[in-house]
Computed example of a mutant assay.
Amino acid sequence: MSLILILEQVLNGLQAGVMLFLMAAGLTLIFGVMGLINLAHGSLYMVGAFAAAGVAAATGSFLLALVAALVAAAAAGVVVETVVMRRLYARDHLDQVLATFALILIFSELTRWAFGSFPLYLNPPDWLSGPVTLPGGIRYPVYRLALIGIGLAVGLGLWALTRRTRLGIRIRAGENDREMIAALGVDIGRLYTLVFALGAALAGLAGALVGAIQSVQVGMGEPVLILAFVVIVIGGIGSIRGAFVGALLVGLTDTLGGIFLPELFKLVTDPATATQAGASLSSMSIYILMSLVLIWRPTGLFGAKA
């Protein structure tokens, strides 16, 4: 196994990680501020991907497609929060799970009705197409490098928002004592809507960006949602920093496990079955990582101590 192949897989893991971060950051914001379990977050990811694919097909502009993904996902988030979620804040988590699971089915059927059952394809712009030669002779797609850069920029922007702005102060205060900030005159309903729209917009952006390297299809958000939950459990619920570190760990573990574990199995077992056994263990690797983190730190890497 060559060093160039390993470095390429590391970059692939970073790219997968930063895209997971966009998904997990919105999810952890919503849960941290509102205490709401939102299984429909993956559907907002799907809404962003389909909005981007539709606008790109109509206009030919990738940038307009990204704007459309942000607007569509944020608008869908506002509708979901005002119509459904506001009735669930004081309810049990089981009620929230059931209601948001119903939203998954609704979004899936509406998307199938609007766009059909066949996958759509979103092509990256010409100025982000093709490979670039990195130091060491690594030829890597420009678009995937751009995804890494966008994810890092969004992470920095979220840090600045939560740490350097008045809205960020209110978000952090809402995580700790929502009754107190409501008593101080903060419109808690408007804050919830803003946080939900922000989380939805991040999910929609992730869907649009990933849609250019895989097909856009109904149900594409649910597998990513599962990984996002793993990320926030590893990083710590309510922590943006934890979501970022957890997403990178999951992305690198999943990607590197896919190439190293089959090779390790070839050393200890029959090469004919090593690939299958290694692939099976690779698919379990992120859950093994989550288990180890929880054994060591039950609240996650950056979660508040009990």
Rank of each mutant, 00 (worst) to 15 (best):
L5C: 00
E8D: 12
Q9E: 13
Q9V: 03
N12Y: 10
L14Q: 03
A16R: 09
G17T: 02
M19D: 01
A24S: 14
A25I: 01
A25Y: 01
G32N: 07
I37T: 06
A40G: 09
H41E: 00
Y45S: 03
A49Q: 07
T59Q: 14
S61T: 13
V67C: 13
A68D: 05
A68M: 10
A76G: 04
G77Y: 07
V78R: 02
T82Y: 14
T82Q: 15
V83Q: 13
V83C: 08
M85Y: 15
R86Q: 14
D92Q: 12
D92I: 05
H93E: 09
H93R: 09
H93N: 10
D95T: 11
A99Q: 02
A99I: 03
T100C: 01
I106N: 04
W113M: 12
A114H: 09
F115G: 02
G116V: 09
G116Q: 12
S117D: 15
F118E: 14
F118C: 00
Y121C: 00
L122K: 04
L122I: 07
P125H: 14
G130R: 15
P131I: 10
G136P: 01
Y140M: 11
V142K: 15
L147C: 08
A153R: 13
V154R: 03
L161A: 08
R164E: 05
R166A: 15
L167F: 14
G168D: 00
R170N: 05
I171S: 05
I171Q: 04
A173V: 02
A173W: 04
R178I: 15
M180W: 10
L184S: 14
D187M: 10
I188M: 13
T193K: 06
L194H: 05
V195L: 08
F196Q: 01
G199H: 05
G199Q: 07
G199C: 07
G204N: 08
G207L: 11
G207D: 09
A208R: 10
A208D: 01
A212K: 07
A212T: 05
I213E: 11
S215H: 11
Q217T: 12
V218Q: 08
G219R: 09
G219A: 11
M220D: 04
I226M: 13
I237S: 02
G242L: 03
G251L: 10
G251H: 04
L252N: 06
T253P: 06
D254K: 15
G257S: 12
G257C: 09
D270R: 09
D270C: 08
A272R: 08
T273Q: 10
T273C: 00
A274G: 03
T275M: 09
A277N: 08
G278Y: 07
S280E: 00
L281A: 10
S282R: 09
M284T: 12
M290K: 03
S291N: 00
S291T: 12
L292Q: 07
L294P: 00
W296R: 14
P298T: 06
P298E: 06
G303A: 08
K305N: 11
